[in-house]
Structure formats: structure tokens, C-alpha cells
Design a protein around this nucleic acid. Structure first.
Lengths: 125, 125
DNA sequence: GAAGTGACTTTCTATATGAAAGTTACTCCA
DNA sequence: TGGAGTAACTTTCATATAGAAAGTCACTTC
């Protein structure tokens, strides 16, 4: 399913995925929606990495454009939104786990997210 | 294993991984080294996506800094290099497969790399 | 009526991206 | 002997994106 009006730079499905996911923030938003129970704009921007609000706004827009995230108003006057992953977004879970796994094994440990929220000892090479 | 002098922005292993891999090009270089038998500078920049040479140069440097790629001269006068994945780099294979898989399922098909080099029919949603 | 809250948007500077051309150190061929 | 070719970069430069900070809007609560 391609977004209307978008031309991919390549026929490779990895290159295509990277056009949407290939930056330092997008997958952190997905992580927070998937595992950390963060669903409002405020909650998302209060993550450890402190994403700038303009980027968060942009990324949420892009994720919605591509159908990975949807939102619905949880109140009117003023309208406020709750963001959630769609099926397409939830399908990123194995990918997220692989990234986490590689980082944990190869970049000196760190948090290992969905399993425990605490730090595990770094693997000794 | 952290690179000397580098401060990660977060303790999350996903955020850490994205500091190294989170852009539109890096994983394509890894893909080409891993599956497409491309090992020289020239071969790498002749990929379908036509990565600019300055970016390729930069990315190879970063990948070497982090120990995901190594190179050795395959000739002197003038010296020319052959790039290869290290174990740490090869450990990205499952991640690459997951990205490919997600893209294939969710972005209208495209090439499905290591298995066949030809296009498969797009999955109908 | 003043302060607070949530969800953004705007502004601004710095860094990164990408296209193109240039450089270096050769080899090969006429 | 000199001109063309080749591989691996580096440099230049215009444009785009990133990131910090402050501002806006539509309320609610004290």
C-alpha cells in the first residue's frame, strides 16, 4: 500500500521502509506507543530522549499519513487527541525487538525495553 | 561496547541503535555488503539508490568507527580498499530481514532481497 | 481575573543532505 | 611521452532538516 502521490526512490523494500522509518526519532515514537503506554502528545514528548515538539508533531503527521498511527479526540473544547498504532504500526513490533536486541548486544547494554524496564548488566564480549 | 568519547543520548538500546543506524542510507550500505556482493567504493555507489559519494564516504567512516565494517587494501599504488562487515555488522542480518519484511508487507511489495533478486507480486491487503 | 494545562506552531540557528565537480595516484595504450 | 581511463575519495555549495526556545490557542480551575 503506497501513499497516494508518493514515488519511492527504489524498488527495494528496505530502501522503501527507510524512507518512512529511517531517522533518529520515528521508531522512538512507535516504541512509546507500543510499549510505554504513552498516547498523548504530552506523554510522548516527556520521554527520556526529549524529542522537540515540532519534530514530534511532524512525525505523528507522517505516521498518520502512512497509516501506521491513528488518533481520536478524547475530549472536545478544546479538542485533545489520543494516538494509537494501527495494525500496520503494530506490525513493527518484531523489527523494534530486533533493533533493541542488536543495540543491547553491541552497544554496551542499556535498557532492554518491553521485557524489563530496568537495566540489565552489559554483555561482556 | 561504546565508542570511546561517545555519549549516548539515552539508556534505551533502541535509541542508541538509532544514533548509528537511524538514517536513510546506513542500512543500505549494510545491505549491499551483506547480500549483494558489493565491496568496493565504486560498487557500493552504483546501487539502485545512487547514494552521493560524500555520504557514502561518511557512512563508511562511521561504520568503521563503530566497528561494524572493516576494510583492507586489495592493492597498493594506488591503494584501493575492499570493505567488509565485521561480526558486529553481520549481526544486523535479522534486523535487515525484519525491515525488508515489514516494507514488503506494508509498502506495496517491491524487491524482497536476499531470497530472490526479482520482484514478487505485491501482497493484496 | 490570574494561573495552569495540553497540544501544538512559529522562529531561528546549526547541522545534514544531495548534486556536481575536482583531486590524487596511478595504469594502459598509441 | 602524453592523453585517456579508473578507483577512491574530497570539496563546494544550495537546499532541507534538526533541534532549542518561545509563542499561541482554547479552554478549566483557583
Amino acid at each position: 500500500m503506497t501513499r497516494t502521490g508518493h514515488e519511492f526512490r527504489s524498488r527495494c523494500s528496505i530502501a522503501r521502509s527507510l524512507e518512512i522509518l529511517g531517522d533518529r526519532w520515528t521508531l522512538l515514537v512507535v516504541r512509546d506507543l507500543m510499549w510505554h503506554g504513552k498516547h498523548t502528545f504530552q506523554e510522548l514528548q516527556n520521554s527520556e530522549e526529549r524529542m522537540p515538539t515540532n519534530q514530534l508533531s511532524q512525525r505523528l503527521k507522517r505516521l498518520m499519513d502512512w497509516g501506521l498511527v491513528s488518533r481520536k479526540a478524547y475530549q472536545d473544547r478544546p479538542v485533545r487527541y489520543r494516538y494509537e498504532l494501527t495494525d500496520k504500526g503494530r506490525a513493527l513490533e518484531p523489527l523494534l525487538r530486533q533493533i533493541m536486541h542488536w543495540g543491547y548486544d553491541n552497544l554496551g547494554g542499556g535498557f532492554y525495553d518491553p521485557v524489563h524496564k530496568k537495566s540489565l548488566p552489559a554483555k561482556q564480549p
